[in-house]
Design a protein around this nucleic acid. Structure first.
Lengths: 192, 192, 192, 192
DNA sequence: CATGAATGAGCGTTCATTCAT
DNA sequence: TATGAATGAACGCTCATTCAT
């Protein structure tokens, strides 16, 4: 039954996601995953070639979720008019990340094989493409001579600051101040 | 003998550092470390409570080295006058990171326990303090109203872009262009 | 349908034979066999009590083939007259084995349960019976007082030497020399 | 302590030999071996790179024992004079093999990797060298023109018949008759 | 202090076999 | 009769850690 398969497959992926969050990558084992999914280890190997394949599926779904949520946000940002668009956009990214904080941290800081998780790897480039698209559609309030390099830099500024706010909020400076400053800087950056 | 202790201790830390670079965190075992240090595993446990303590010491020394090197650079930047100071400073950070690329990558991408390495954690705050100090000593060519939040943002921009250049150079944009843009942005940022 | 049954049964046996040759006994799994036969694993268990039963059927067919081929050869040897009969006979055995070399090797060197494959076990006795029959029909050029023990010894000599030539040709001595010597010895042995 | 090592090492090898005899190669596991040796599995891996290395050591010791026993026998055969020398020699081989019957069978019929057990592989060639040496030292009662090929054939006859007697005694013919015939044939073969 | 030796606990993976449908 | 899905029971192996000396 295809139904039964789907259920088992999903159970495995979700069990894995949960364990990654609770125990971290290194201490998440195939036996744990299968046990929490309520199936035998061997079933895991029916659906995945090995442990990292399950983890990869978790990553793929995570990336999907994040991009989809950001996609919806982008539409609203552009449609919603210039007014506070940047602020809305940045806060949308911030909230999206905050929601998946623990899981994102696993792939950012724990998954040991650099260059082996296509979906995660693709996030950076996708973000750039994304921004380029926004730039094109937002000709009204974005300066026309914004180069790719400059855009990439801006993305770095935004993402790294959001990451800092999400994963390691600085002690000496208030969240609010940092976010406000980030918004201000970004508006200045993109505006003519 | 305190002397012999010191020697053994150092040998262990250096063996560990070498193995982390060569084999990665997961494949570096206590037996490897001890063997390369020329002592017995049990001796490792005389000096350290466990594997991760050795790794933590490696991390601490790495952070020390990086900060020391940046400290020396900062002095030169300030003393050397305004001329191209920002460029020199940014390239110094870039080169420092590049030199330790492999080891930094271990702590960035392989060490499995987020939030358990004090020295690594302290890098962010230390970098901010550092920059605040520079700001004070460089009153001449740094705008006087540069807030802490703004400074933190600038650090984020600089470090995240350098990290990208070192660990994951973007395909669509040239290194040069990105560095040039970074320098230009930073000068604009700090200048009145 | 008996017809469909037969087809499936044969497909399983042939798939198994192929896999044994290609992957060896240990790496041939029931799932492989079923997959290559184009049926489900569970079907395999409809026709056979377990993995080794399939293997046993492969063995039985192999023995059958070998004996049938030798039978045809024996007739020709006897009918063809004395001239070089021994040489023709020995080379027929040699070629028959060579043709099935890989599969024979599986049962000789890989099948793990000694004394559990009736068909293979029966080969020895069958060979003796065979030779006794030849002896009866070849009264003309075989000495009349050739005892069973002597015949068994001769079979041992011939088969072990052929096995050596097929599976483990000696390095110091040429194939030709060994075969020639074997033929000469055999002729001397059976002739008055 | 080197003493402790030796003891553990030997215990492992002996445990392995016992299990091979009792359970066969495939069902002898590293955990079994270690358990019977009274040590932890991990200790097995201190002394051997893996399961097959233990098995290889068992094989090496077996071959050693067999060759040593045959060596002692050869001396007696040659020194003891021509009288019944062949019979003594053949019975010596027969008895030696009989003593290790089960273990020999494991390596002959169960060990799955052809061409991976140097010691076992060397047995054939060693036997030929052995016989060549005997031929040289026994000029008195061995025909001078016995070629290497002929000698190899004789070895095949003797070993295969002894193997048959040890592992698969034929039903229609008495042991005695077969042995007598073998001795007679061999004497005829080597004598002028 | 130092070491050779040992080990507990677990890991990822495999496969012959059996259900539920 | 046939199958998709599931599983029990192991297996070979690793490694951080600890004794006994």
């Amino acid at each position: 039954m295809q139904e039964r398969s789907r259920v088992t497959f999903d159970a495995l992926v979700e069990a894995c996601a949960g364990l990654l969050v609770e125990r971290g990558y290194a201490r998440t084992t195939t036996n744990h995953i299968a046990a929490r999914a309520g199936v035998n280890v061997a079933s895991l190997y029916e659906y995945f070639p090995g442990k990292d394949a399950v983890v990869a599926e978790v990553a793929a779904r995570l990336v999907d979720r994040v991009l989809r949520r950001l996609g919806r946000g982008a539409a609203q940002v552009v449609e919603g008019g210039e007014q506070r668009a940047v602020r809305r956009w940045i806060e949308r990214i911030h909230d999206t990340l905050l929601r998946e904080k623990k899981l994102v941290a696993v792939f950012l800081y724990q998954f040991p094989h650099t260059g082996q998780l296509d979906s995660i790897e693709s996030l950076g480039p996708r973000l750039l493409e994304f921004s380029q698209e926004i730039r094109r559609h937002a000709a009204g309030f974005v300066r026309s001579d914004l180069s790719d390099a400059s855009l990439q830099l801006l993305i770095n500024l935004v993402t790294s600051t959001i990451m800092q706010l999400v994963f390691d909020p600085p002690r000496g400076i208030s969240r609010r101040a940092l976010l406000d400053e980030l918004v201000a800087r970004t508006e200045e950056w993109i505006r003519d």
